[in-house]
Amino acid sequence: MKRTGYIIGPLIACMLTAGCAKEEDRYKEAREYMSSMEAIAVEEVVAYQREQTAKPSQTVTQEQTAQEPDTPEQITQEPIRPDTQPATQEAQTDDNPVTDEDPDIETTTEEIPTEPAPSAKTKEQVKEEAMAAWSAQVAEGNISLLSSEEHANLLSKLSGTVFVGDSVTQALVTEGMVPESMVFFKRGVLLKEITPYVEAAASVFPEKVVFFKGLGDVDHEDPVSYCEKYAALVNLLRERVPGVKIYICALLPPSNAVAAAREDLARSWMFDDQLRAWCPTADVTYIDLHWMVSQPLYLADGIHFNKIFYNLWLKYVTAVVTDWEDVLV
């Protein structure tokens, strides 16, 4: 009986162990799948997704090219591309009755080669008109607030953009301008302390980063070291997110009342001048906000701005980061 026990006991133990092992094997494939998914590096996915984003425009071009021979009527009715003129003229001569009916098309196509590239001039015009309209709104104290549709339009254009800063950036969230997921901030943070927030911004691999900081550093830095600290942050971003575009907003002055009372803050113009000069050397876009500052746009503390200011700020900054495409005035 004792010997039987010595045999049966270990036999049962082995069977149980084998059963457990078999049970674990059942889940192995799923768990390996989950592990593989977790192990994929974020950088790898970012690169893959950007590659996929680049692909559709090439595909569309190929499709258009494939379609062109099948739809000559469309080509003759598009008075846009000077390169296609000979082809369109040939198509018109051969078969297309459109030429006989619409002689104006020939006139239009003859004028096209003499016009300068429309897109560059249009952007400049757009920019001038928008700046003129906004400046007038600021001067008249009549800045238009965003409607829901306009707000949605701006937010969709800001996809891939994040904002970094202190309380003046925090206001983008508190005033309901942009979602918190796009903003990396700490109230009162200085440039020498902001690195964790820049790293957090970098961790979402943005396409564009906009810095907007307030007057906190004016008490703790000199203009040269101020720009040196920005330079370090810019380098950090570029190392973590190759190809990222970086924008730095102007350091705005305090209100007249605060500037009269606080000499230390009144010297902010020295920091801003240094920043404005440094940015182009570092391939960073300086966003000049001075034109949009007027006294009524300050909050009572004379350092922060109100919601009306941020409505205009959002329109302007969006225009800048999208290179003045389809500007919302």
Binding site: M37, E38, I40, V45
Partner: peptide
């Protein structure tokens, strides 16, 4: 095929690449 995804959870920093 293994999905190549970026998952961002509100209140957390950065992305993960899994939903599990």
């Amino acid at each position: 095929r293994m999905p190549m995804i970026l998952v961002r959870i509100s209140g957390q920093t950065g992305y993960t690449t899994t939903i599990y």
